[in-house]
């Protein structure tokens, strides 16, 4: 823990220096607050208007979490399905990549037209953003099984299901987690974008309202909230990964 703290001081120092520079610049050059508010004002707004944005924040967290969960499950299911059915995989793989070429900004208003202002179009956007990194990472992980282990399992008479459960799935876990981490970071962005396009609650809404009334300080509060949320989400997944793939860190040791 102390070691991590010692290693972590560099980025923290750079960040603090940056904030200090920002603060000093906005004072020296007398930059108007609506153009670029100083960090001190952002912090002050962040604390004083907690009651204003708290419902927005919780709504976004709920939306992100739900969308992420659905997206992750969908991505994993898709990966497993395509892994087990190679012919379907060949047919669907190009479509999968194409799905990521749809500009979300364009798609979102259409989704609102089709599905209204409820949760459904928002969830669709988050799922669309989230499933892809997970699906690709999981498929790669499932495919990259050590041929020697595979050979052993087959010689021992393991069925396809046993090979999947006992070999391919645990083998793919580290790879899957890489995908999940990327998705976790994306999912917050996805949620905010979906809120921009029509919602009555959420950080995205708070942000649009703030920017249209030139409350730049609030815009920055929203930006930092989004960053914090992404980071928090990422750390949670990281923690889960460490618990589920603890064997990876135990190399050397007992024998030496």
């Amino acid at each position: 823990m102390t070691q991590r703290f010692i290693r972590g001081w560099r980025p923290v120092a750079v960040l603090l220096l940056f904030i200090l520079l920002w603060e000093l610049c906005s004072r020296w050059f007398d930059i108007p607050e609506w153009l670029l508010p100083p960090p001190s004002l952002i912090l002050e707004t962040g604390i004083s208007s907690w009651a204003d944005y708290a419902p927005h924040l919780f709504s976004t967290i709920r939306l992100t979490f739900l969308g992420f969960m659905i997206g992750a499950c969908f991505g994993l299911l898709l990966a497993v399905l395509l892994h087990l059915l190679p012919s379907v995989r060949e047919a669907l793989y190009p479509l999968l990549i194409l799905s990521q070429n749809i500009p979300i900004i364009v798609l979102a208003p259409l989704l609102v037209i089709w599905f209204g202002f409820g949760a459904l179009p928002k969830l669709i956007i988050i799922v669309l953003v989230c499933f892809f990194p997970i699906a690709i990472a999981a498929m790669d992980g499932l495919r990259q099984t050590n041929p020697e282990w595979m050979h052993y399992m087959k010689m021992s008479g393991a069925t396809k299901g046993q090979i999947f459960r006992k070999l391919e799935w645990p083998n793919a876990l580290p790879s899957i987690f890489s995908g999940v981490k990327i998705s976790a970071a994306y999912s917050v962005m996805g949620a905010v974008i979906s809120e921009w396009l029509g919602a009555n609650k959420g950080i995205g809404v708070y942000m649009t309202l703030a920017s249209s009334s030139f409350r730049t300080d609030r815009v920055f509060v929203a930006i930092f909230l989004i960053m914090g949320l992404s980071l928090l989400f990422f750390l949670l997944i990281n923690l889960l990964e460490k618990r589920m793939t603890s064997w990876q860190r135990k190399g050397g040791g007992v024998h030496e």
């Binding site: 282990w149 050979h151 010689m155 645990p170």
Partner: peptide, 13 residues
């Protein structure tokens, strides 16, 4: 049959 391969093939997890 029961099989022992050339490499130990122990699963790391």
């Amino acid at each position: 049959i029961s099989y022992m391969p050339q490499s130990p093939s122990l699963l790391p997890w």
